[in-house]
Every structure is written in structure tokens, then in C-alpha cells.
Amino acid sequence: MHGEFKVPGGKLVVVDLSVTDGKLADVRVSGDFFLEPDEALAAIDRALTGMPEDSDAKALAASVTAALPEGAVLLGFTAESVATAVRRALRKATTWRDYEWQLVHPGPLDPLTHLALDEVLATEVGEGRRKPTLRIWEWDQPAVVIGSFQSVKNEVDPENAAKYGFRVVRRISGGGAMFMDAGAIITYSIYAPADLVTGMSFADSYAFFDEWTVVALKSLGVDASYQPLNDIASPAGKIGGAAQKRLGNGGVLHHVTMAYDMDGDRMAEVLRIGREKLSDKGTKSANKRVDPLRSQTGKSRDEIIERMISTFRDAHGLTDGVITDAEYARAAELVTEKFGTDEWLYRVP
């Protein structure tokens, strides 16, 4: 059995093995990674040999970590990435190409509907009623979208938000506030089965889900890169940020907002971005922290989105799909029951 896993931003991990009496045998780990000392590789092979074939990724990674010699250095890969390669060899972890991905790109929707659709479509994928999906957002009204665990009063200046017409809404994923002016952002959501990221740490899964975006931006001449934990950036500044939510039914939501154009002064008025937030960013001003794609590429928003879609299609396969009437109806119910209520918005005042 043969399994491979390319660590996003890192190296390729390859595992060859067989199974005897329900246990891993003849395990051989290889790849273009860096590992010191040399004998650590044999220790990894021994640690995996004899493990039950139904071991989960956590158990496999723990066995690898425990077997490493004191002071061992792993560069370009991790114990978790070895576990993922093992499970792929056993056909218990999946890759992008194991699924038929669908694209949905409807016209402008209001912010609350967008947030409700994230929950609906992630749930549908988790339940197996929808194929894994890439959704491109469109909207024609401004909003501030705060993370699931953020305080409204700590993140937003309500007077300035009202002054400029920014509605404040709360999403189901964590992370920071998103300043989303009409026509000035590029946002997408990925709805995937949890099997796609089985064995990956949260940090690895962020890079994994965003790797195709970095490729697309590089093809447009942007020196883009993934910056842990959840940023896409260039030497000129931050481009966007990601957030993720894993549902109990096996569905995963991963969404990203990137700045296409931005009024940095207005953002600084609407959002309360304090010194502590910027303390590790190497900048004194929030409006100098972000470098929008319009200035970096000189291309229209639609051109950038089309390049992103074509990059995803070439890398992973993609067919056109639609959001069903039933999904829209469920989203409308969630707006009424949850996303549009003060109880949800101010659950962290």
C-alpha cells in the first residue's frame, strides 16, 4: 500500500506499507523532508510497524512522536503529516481528487443569508446530501462580520458603523472581525467532509485548504504566501484571513476573505483595532497592515475571481452547481431563528 501527503508550504511525505493480521507491517517512510539525526527515520518506521490498521491519526502521530530520539528535528513535515500519509495508504484518509467538487456562485445576497448558508451547506455536506462545494460570495451592502467568540463592543465602534451603513453580524467560526465593504472584498467558502483533513492539525488544515489560493495569486504576479495561523499575505502586507468550523456531523466549513480594495481610514474608524492586536504585526497602523489585491494586480475583481476558479478547477476538478430552494429556505429560517437575533449577535456583548 502506498500513500502520499504534501505538507502545505512544506515537503512531501511518502509511506509504503503492508498489513498482516490487522497490523501495519514493512512500514517505510520517505520523502524530500529534512530530518536529524539520520537514525530518527528508522525509529519512525519501527514506531509505526505493528500498529493496528484501524489506529486513528492521533494515535499514529503520538507513536511517531514518542519514538523520536531526544533533540530530533523535523523540517518540512510533522508527525501528523506522517499519520495522514499512513491513513492515505490504508485508504482511510482522502485527497481533493477523491471528490466531485461543485461550484456555486449566485448573485448578491445579504450578509445574514451568507452566514446562514455557511451553516446550511456545511451541514448538508456533512450529512452526505450535498457534494463538497466551493462557494463564491457576492454582496452589494457593507457589513462587519465578527468572529464567533468576539465581543461586539470591543471590536466595533457602533456610531461609526451606523454612520457609514455597516451592519454588524456574527458568524459561526472563530477568528477576527472582517471589514466587508460592498464590492471591495473577495470571499469564498469551502464545504468539505472531515475525511479530507483527517490526521491534520488545525494549523496544517488551514494551509491545506488555502494552498490553491496562494497558487492562484502567484499566477497573477502576487508574491503570496500562507502565514500561520490563518493569514494569506505578501511582503507588502496582509491580503486576507481564514476561519474554520468543524461540525459534529463530519462537515467542515473553511472560509476566507481577501481585500480587493479598501478604505483603510474608514476601516480604522469602524473597527476598534488596538495596539495589542498589532503588537506582533510589525506595524503601527491598521490601515497600513493590509495591501489589497487591486493595487497588487491591477486587475478587476471579476478577473481575479475567474483566475481563482480556474486554478481550483485545474487542481481539484470543479463542476457548476446550484444552491437548492430547500437550502435557501433553511437559510432563511436560520436568519430568523439565529443569525438575525440580538441573542446571537450579543452572545458575547
Rank of each mutant, 00 (worst) to 15 (best):
A162D: 12
D118G: 09
T198R: 12
K277H: 12
S295L: 14
A59L: 13
L271W: 02
E306W: 13
A122P: 05
V256E: 07
D231C: 10
Q150L: 10
A233M: 11
L345W: 04
H255W: 06
D45I: 03
R307H: 14
V270S: 05
V73F: 08
D118E: 15
M262K: 03
I172G: 01
L41P: 06
S55I: 09
D118W: 08
V348Y: 08
K131V: 07
V348G: 00
T133H: 01
M308N: 06
D118I: 07
Q296S: 03
M178N: 14
W96M: 04
M51E: 15
D302S: 14
G71Q: 04
R301W: 00
V152M: 08
K6M: 04
V64R: 03
G3I: 04
V64E: 05
L74Q: 11
I185Y: 12
V15I: 08
G340M: 07
E80G: 05
A224W: 04
G175K: 03
S151I: 09
E100A: 01
P106G: 11
M178D: 15
S310K: 15
A286E: 08
L345Y: 02
A203L: 15
D56I: 07
G241R: 07
T257F: 06
D140I: 12
A62S: 15
S173W: 09
V169K: 01
G3N: 01
R307T: 12
K23M: 13
E333Y: 04
Y99F: 13
H114Y: 05
D280Q: 15
G317I: 00
D223L: 06
D32A: 05
S279H: 15
A233F: 08
T324Q: 00
E36A: 14
A79N: 08
M267F: 03
R87H: 13
D302Y: 10
G321V: 01
L103G: 00
K23P: 07
L12E: 11
P108F: 04
F339D: 02
S151P: 01
V156M: 00
L271H: 05
E4L: 10
D342G: 13
V82F: 11
D157K: 11
G199R: 01
Q296H: 04
M180G: 06
Y191M: 12
E138Y: 05
G248C: 09
R91K: 15
S189R: 08
I136P: 00
D16V: 02
N230K: 02
V348P: 00
I146F: 02
V169Y: 00
V73A: 13
D320C: 05
P111H: 01
L60E: 06
I185T: 15
A66W: 11
A268E: 15
